[in-house]
Each structure stands twice: as structure tokens, then as C-alpha cells.
């Protein structure tokens, strides 16, 4: 375990270094962006919509008992932009994309394709891992924004048709809460998550062994580890960045 986290650490270092060296394999990167972005879109929209509505439903009932249901927009924006949007998106991408990345790289490894690449003078980290890292860095924040928007819009549906909160009140509170602190936190998280997903999923792929079964095991471990790491990292960002940003009226 200690050995493994050490090699994960060095592996991540190599991936980061690879970001700055040629050749860049633009085609692969665009292809991965498409696969990751478009591939996860439906899942993220679905998750965002139902979570947003569920959340709004629960909160509006609770707020109504205080006679404060007009505040629904504030709570929704805060909870979704800072916590729910990034975490849900991160977990969904982890489930869908991390599994795919680990399985694909693992299959390439077990059929010697990675060695064949090296034999042709190509660094598999640059050719295989880096395009996925870059695509994740770009697509996870984009997907998070989509998720945020859909979830808040889902909350609006509940606000308007079930909780009887006026549309103007709901949205003006939402916009009120989209201040620098929340936006910063809401975008920092997905960027950090994208590194987590890329590092762990590629690492498990590259280090998988033991044939088909080994690849299956690596895939399961990869999804589990990315999910847990995302949740833990999320907590620490909320804690540390939250207190650092206290000056910016959260």
C-alpha cells in the first residue's frame, strides 16, 4: 500500500511533466474530449436534474415551516455550486470515465500494445495518459457547470410549481449567491477532481497485470479509489479554501 502510493505519486509527477513536452498528439486529445464530454453529458444532466429537484423539494418543505421558503434560491445556489455540483459530477465522471480509461489502458497493457508503442519510440504516458488528463481538465469543469445549471433549474421547477416561490425571487437569490467565493470554489473543485480521476485511472491501467481478471480488478479498484479520493479531497477543499475565502462574503 505504501509502495503503491509512492509509485502513484511518481506516476502523477511524470504525467504532470509530460504536459510540457512535445509531441502533443492533438488528434488524440480532441477525440478524448469528445468521448469524455459528450459521453458523460447525459449522465450528468440526469443526475443534476433529479438531485436538484430532490434537494429543492426537501429544503422547500423545511424552509416553509420557518416561513422562509423564499430563501430556496440562496440555499440551492450555495449547496449546488459549492458542493453538490462538483461532487456529483466528479463521481459520475469517475464511474463512467475512470472505469473506461483503466479498462482500456489495462487491455492495451495485457496485449503488449503499450510495449509495442515503446518499441516504436513512443512514450505511452504522452500518447495515452496525457490526452486523457488534458481532456478531463477541460471537460470536468464544463460538465460541472452544466450539472450546476440543470440542478438549479430543477430546483426552480419545484420552486415554481410545488413550493409557490416566484420565479423572480428564486433566480435573483440564485444570482445573488453566484459571487466570487462560490464560483471560485465551484470551479477549483472540478479542476482538482480531474487530476484525481486522470492520475488514479491511468495509474491503475498502467500497473494492471494478470490478464483479463487483473484488468477487471484494476477497473473496480480504480473507480473505488477515485470516488473515495474525490469525496475526501472535496472535504479538504471546502475546509481549507472555505476559510481562506472568508473575506469574500460567502
Amino acid at each position: 500500500m505504501a509502495y503503491q502510493s509512492q509509485s502513484l505519486f511518481f506516476f502523477s509527477g511524470r504525467m504532470i511533466l509530460s504536459l510540457f513536452t512535445r509531441p502533443f498528439y492533438i488528434t488524440e486529445t480532441l477525440e478524448q474530449m469528445y468521448l469524455i464530454g459528450v459521453g458523460s453529458l447525459f449522465l450528468v444532466v440526469l443526475t443534476g436534474m433529479f438531485s436538484g429537484q430532490g434537494f429543492a423539494l426537501a429544503f422547500s418543505q423545511e424552509l416553509a415551516t420557518f416561513g422562509a421558503k423564499d430563501y430556496l434560491g440562496r440555499i440551492m445556489a450555495l449547496a449546488i455550486v459549492r458542493e453538490l455540483g462538483p461532487t456529483l459530477t466528479g463521481l459520475m465522471v469517475a464511474a463512467r470515465v475512470a472505469a473506461g480509461i483503466t479498462a482500456e489502458i489495462g487491455a492495451m497493457k495485457s496485449s503488449n500494445q503499450l510495449d509495442a508503442l515503446v518499441g516504436f519510440g513512443i512514450d505511452p504516458i504522452k500518447k495515452i495518459a496525457r490526452p486523457r488528463l488534458i481532456s478531463l481538465i477541460i471537460m470536468v469543469p464544463v460538465l460541472t457547470i452544466v450539472c450546476d445549471f440543470v440542478a438549479i433549474a430543477g430546483g426552480w421547477v419545484i420552486a415554481k410549481f410545488i413550493a409557490n416561490v416566484s420565479t423572480t425571487v428564486y433566480w435573483s437569490y440564485v444570482i445573488d449567491k453566484l459571487n466570487f467565493g462560490n464560483m471560485f470554489m465551484g470551479l477549483l473543485k472540478p479542476i482538482v477532481f480531474s487530476f484525481v480521476i486522470a492520475f488514479i485511472s491511468c495509474f491503475y491501467g498502467f500497473t494492471s497485470g494478470g490478464g483479463t481478471k487483473g484488468v477487471g480488478r484494476a477497473t473496480t479498484n480504480s473507480v473505488m479509489m477515485t470516488s473515495i479520493t474525490i469525496l475526501i479531497v472535496n472535504f479538504f477543499i471546502t475546509k481549507v479554501v472555505g476559510s481562506a475565502l472568508r473575506g469574500y462574503q460567502l
Partner: peptide
């Protein structure tokens, strides 16, 4: 190493074609 590998071709067990 790249220079060396240019002198040597390898056919892997099962081919290792890029699928």
C-alpha cells in the same frame, strides 16, 4: 534506446496490434 530499437523489430506474442 530509440536508436537501438530502430535496429531491432519485435513481433510480440499475439501480435500486439493496436486494436
Amino acid at each position: 534506446k530509440q536508436q537501438i530499437r530502430k535496429k531491432i523489430g519485435m513481433v510480440f506474442q499475439d501480435g500486439a496490434l493496436f486494436d
